[in-house]
Computed example of a mutant assay.
Amino acid sequence: MFTINRENLRRSHQLFWFIVDFLMLGLLFLNILWIIFDSLYAVDVVRDMLFQYAQPFAEFYRPIHRNFIFYDLVFVWIFLTEFVIRWVYAIHSKLYGRWYFYPFLHWYDLLGCIPIGSYRFLRVLRVISIVYRLHKYQVIDFTQTRVYQFLRFYYEAFMEELSDRIVIKVLSGAQAEMTHGSPLIHRIQNEILLPRRDLLTQWLSEKVAETAQTGYIPNRGALRHYLENCVDHALTQNVELSRLRQVPMLGPQITETLEAAVGDIVAEVIHRILDDLASARNHAFIEDIVGTFLQETEAPGEGPSESERQIIQVVNEIIEALKKQLAIKRWRQEL
């Protein structure tokens, strides 16, 4: 059974309404059980069994069954009174934007008060709403009950099966589109990306400049030191410089001067490139790159080329791996 947090119940500012909720729960359970019993009593087989094995009770209940609607109206009157009181309270405390929102949001309460046929079983929704409200305010906790865990397990199993089948269907459709050739990629490039090439160039230029400023400028000294070490190491391993270093008197001086000059040149070139990327001067460079990748193309007529077929094959294998992963059912492992 669910547990009741008495501490939260005492500290709550809605203690009165929670007490009303518990009373209404009791009346709803009693009323629903009575409705179920009366429905069973209306069945000839059940009524005959009652007259056979419990005739005094069956005789006693016969007039009650005939006037069941009258007795049910007592419950309906209580439920409607509680509904009206809550509606007035909602208007007074301005719980909703308009005074007439409450009956629309609690339509099941009104329909459940209709004492005719299947409408009465809508009172089960009222039970669910009250239990959910008490659970929401941490007055009761029904997550540890076996019924809740049973329903939650099979609900999650159903949703996993349903979502996996939908995703697999979508992935299979994407594979079929790529295999048979689809103009979607060319339409995206020609109708969506190309008209916005200037916007993409501006955005990419700003992002490159921002990245270069935040990543390069604060580490300019460390980068120069790293480049000089790399150049020194590369020149040390060079065979020609090793031979030049063996020249008497001038060899060591020439190699040191050459190493320093090459290191400065490389570092200066790298710094100049990164300085340009970190400034507004990178716009023309980025525009050339974007223009190279975004060019108007025609949709393939006779089928994809060999390189495109290889790419499609790779994408298909990736999708197949995803489909195999989706085929693994976690709920079965938990079961």
Rank of each mutant, 00 (worst) to 15 (best):
N5P: 05
R10H: 07
H13S: 12
Q14A: 13
L15R: 12
F18I: 07
L23C: 10
M24K: 07
G26V: 13
I32S: 08
I32E: 14
L33C: 09
W34I: 09
I35L: 15
I36N: 08
A42Y: 11
A42Q: 14
V43C: 01
F51W: 10
F51P: 00
Y53I: 06
Q55H: 06
F57G: 02
P63D: 03
R66V: 03
F68Q: 07
F70H: 06
V74A: 15
T81S: 07
E82W: 08
R86A: 11
W87V: 04
K94P: 01
Y96Q: 06
R98Y: 10
Y100Q: 09
L105M: 13
L105G: 03
H106R: 14
D109F: 04
I114E: 03
R123P: 00
V124Q: 00
L125W: 06
V127H: 02
Q138N: 13
D141G: 03
D141M: 05
T143Y: 08
T143M: 07
T145F: 06
Q149Y: 02
L151S: 11
L151C: 13
L162K: 14
L162P: 00
V167Q: 06
K169G: 11
S172E: 11
A174W: 04
A176E: 10
E177I: 11
H180A: 15
L184I: 14
I185A: 12
R187S: 11
N190H: 08
N190T: 08
R197M: 11
D198M: 11
L199I: 04
S205T: 15
E206A: 09
E210G: 10
T211Q: 09
Q213C: 02
G215F: 12
Y216H: 04
I217A: 15
I217C: 05
P218S: 05
P218M: 05
G221V: 07
A222L: 14
A222H: 07
R224H: 08
V231H: 04
H233E: 10
P248N: 03
M249G: 01
I254V: 15
T257N: 13
V262F: 08
D264S: 12
V269P: 01
I270G: 02
R272E: 11
L277D: 02
A278E: 02
S279G: 07
A280W: 02
R281H: 12
A284L: 10
I289M: 13
I289K: 12
G291R: 08
L294R: 01
E296F: 08
E296T: 08
G301R: 09
E302F: 12
E308K: 05
E308M: 08
R309S: 12
R309N: 13
R309Y: 06
Q313F: 09
I318D: 02
I319K: 01
E320A: 12
K323F: 00
L326V: 01
A327S: 15
A327E: 13
R332V: 06
